[in-house]
Design a protein around this nucleic acid. Sequence first.
DNA 1: AGTAATAGTTGGAGCGCTCTACAATCAATA
DNA 2: TATTGATTGTAGAGCGCTCCAACTATTACT
Lengths: 340, 340
Amino acid sequence: MVQPTMEDVASRAGVSRALVSLVMRNSPRVSEQSRAAVLEAAEELGYRRNLMAHHLASRRTMTIGLVLNDLHNPFFAEMTDGIHEAAIEAGYRIVINTGLRNLASEQAAVDTFLEFRTDGVILVGSELPEAELEALAKETNLVVAARVTDSDSYDTVSIDDRLGARMVVDHLVDLGHCRIAHIDGGPGAGARRRREGYKAAMEHRGLSKHVRIVAGEYSEHAGTVGVDELLSHGEMPTAIFAANDLMATGVLDRLQFEGLKVPDDVSLVGFDNTAMAALHQMSLTTVDQPCELLGQLAARYLIERLDEEREEAVHHLLVPSLVCRSTSGPASSRTLEEIR
Amino acid sequence: MVQPTMEDVASRAGVSRALVSLVMRNSPRVSEQSRAAVLEAAEELGYRRNLMAHHLASRRTMTIGLVLNDLHNPFFAEMTDGIHEAAIEAGYRIVINTGLRNLASEQAAVDTFLEFRTDGVILVGSELPEAELEALAKETNLVVAARVTDSDSYDTVSIDDRLGARMVVDHLVDLGHCRIAHIDGGPGAGARRRREGYKAAMEHRGLSKHVRIVAGEYSEHAGTVGVDELLSHGEMPTAIFAANDLMATGVLDRLQFEGLKVPDDVSLVGFDNTAMAALHQMSLTTVDQPCELLGQLAARYLIERLDEEREEAVHHLLVPSLVCRSTSGPASSRTLEEIR
DNA sequence: AGTAATAGTTGGAGCGCTCTACAATCAATA
DNA sequence: TATTGATTGTAGAGCGCTCCAACTATTACT
C-alpha cells in the first residue's frame, strides 16, 4: 500500500525529480523524449501524484469544497450538477461534504475544507449566522448559494425568494383564496425571505388578518407536523404555501391521510421545483429555481475569485418563476367538518 | 488569506514548534501551563492546522473518501447517514464525491481520493468493473457497499439482491400474476443479481415463458422509457418489477400518463424502500434495504482495516424484506385495449 | 569566431507539519 | 553526594512535492 514517489519515477526514467515534476504539470519546456520516458516509468510504477505534497509546495489544490446542507433534498443534487459542470470545465475538481441540516455538522464540514486548504468553498443553503460567514470569508475564498446577504467579502447567488413567495400568494389570491397559511422553513436558507415575502404579499392584497405562519423547517416531517398544527385549531386554511418542495411532500402526504383532497379541499404550493414536483402523482404547483444555472454561477464566481480577477463582492439575484400544476385550484368554501 | 503556521503559534507562546505540535495532537506529555499558553496563542492568531502538511508528515488524514454513485437517488443519502455516523464515532471525518452515474466520473472521483491519500475509500453503488476494484484495493483500503463480489482484497456490504428479486416475484405470483415484466438496472450496482433473481424465481414458479426483461438503468427516465417499451408491443404485463424505486417513480408516472391504474390495471414493485416510496401519493410496494445499517457496517469494516485489525476480506450479506403497500394487487385480466 | 538567445535539465531550498532522539530539570532514591 | 527515573521540552531530519537560480547544450545572429 506504499505508493511510489516522484523520486522513484525519476530514477527509473533516469532523470531528475524536478523533471518528473515538470512532466506531471504538463510543462512545455520538456523534450518529447524525456516526457515519454517519464510517463512510461510512471505508468509502470503506478505512480500517482500526492496531492498533499503537491499542495504544500504549490499552495494550490485545484479543488473546490462544496458544502451541501441536506443530501436528502434533491434540490442540492441539482445544484451540484451545475457546480460540478462549471468546475470541471475550468479545471477544478469538487469535493463534497454535508451539513446534515444542523449547524454543528455544517461547521464541521466547513472546518474540514479549511484544514484541507481547498482553494475555495461553496456553501449551498447554508444556515450559518452571517458573522460566521464573514469570518469564513477571511480564511478562504467563499461563495454562498441559495441564500442572500449583502456582505462585501463573499459572493452570493440566489433567486429572489421574496418575489417567489409573492408569486405564490398572488397566484392563490387570484384563484380566490384568502386563508392562505404558510409553513415556514425556520432556520433554513432563504426561509426568512420567503416568510417575509409571503407576509408582505398578503398585506399587499389586503389579507393581513389572514396571515398565518406555522413554524417548520426544510424537511418532509415538518410538513406533516405543520398540517397537524393547521388542522388542530382555528379555521382551516383553503391553501397552504410550504417553504419548499420537500416539505410540500410531507404536507401532501398528511392531507391525504386526513382525507382532504388536493386541490379540491385545500390547495398546495411548494418551492424549488425539484424533479419530484413534476411527477404525475405529485404534480406540485411550485416556484422554479433554475438550479443548474445557480450552480454554474456559483462555481464561476468562485473561480473568478481564485483567479484573482475580482475583488469586490457580487450578489447575483435571479428571478424565479411559478410553475402551475395540479395541486392548486379555486378556493373551496367547505369547512373541515363538512368535508369529514 | 495567509494562514498562521505552527511556527507563528510557537513563537507567540514562547515555546518550540514541536511543543505546539504535541498540544495540537492532545499529547499527555505537556504541562498544563504550556498547553494553556499554546492554546491561547493559537486562538489569538486564529491558527488552524494544515491537514496537508499534517498528512505529509504523519501519513494519516483520519479521513474517509466516500463515492456516491448518484446524488439524485435518495438511497445514497440514506446510506451516507449511516456511514457518517459510524465514521464520526470512530474519530474519522468523511469527504464525498459523486460518480454521476457514469464510469468516467466515478473513476475521476476515486482518483481524487487517491491523490488526496484519504485513509480509505467507500464506494457506494459502484459501477466499476471488478478488475478496476481489484486494482483500487491495491492502492488504498477499500469497502464496496450495495454491491457484491467475492474478491479477497476488499470488503463488501450489501443485501441479497437475488433474494430480494425473488421475494418480489413470489409476492406477485401469489397475487395471481403471470406476465411479470422486469425493467432492469443495466450497469447499475446489484442490477445483474436482481435480474438473475427475477429470472430464477420466474422459472422456479413455472413462468419461464413469461420472463420479459427490458433494458434500463437506475433512473427515473429509464422507468418512463421502459413503460413505453412494454406497452408498445406484445401482450401488456399485469405487473412490473422496477429495478429500483427511482425507476419505479418514472414507471408510475408514465403508467398514470397512459391512463393505466395502479394496481387495478398494472401492479408495480420497486426496490430500495427509499423515503419517497413510503409517501401516500406513492405508497410503493418495494424491497427494503436497511440503508443506515448498511452504511454503518461499511464504515466499520473500513475502520477495522484502517486500524489493521483484520487482513482477510469480509462479505456481509443482509437479508432484505418486502414492504407491501398499495401499488401491488390482484392481477387484472383486462387487456390494454379494453382499458383504453 | 564570438556573443547572445533559447531549450532542456538539475540541485537545493522550502512548504508546514510529525517524530525520533536527546537535553534539561527536578524529585526521589541509594 | 551521586545516581536514577520521570517529566517536560527541543533540535533536526524528513514527508513528497514545487519553484527558482543556475547550468549545459544547442542554435541563431552579428
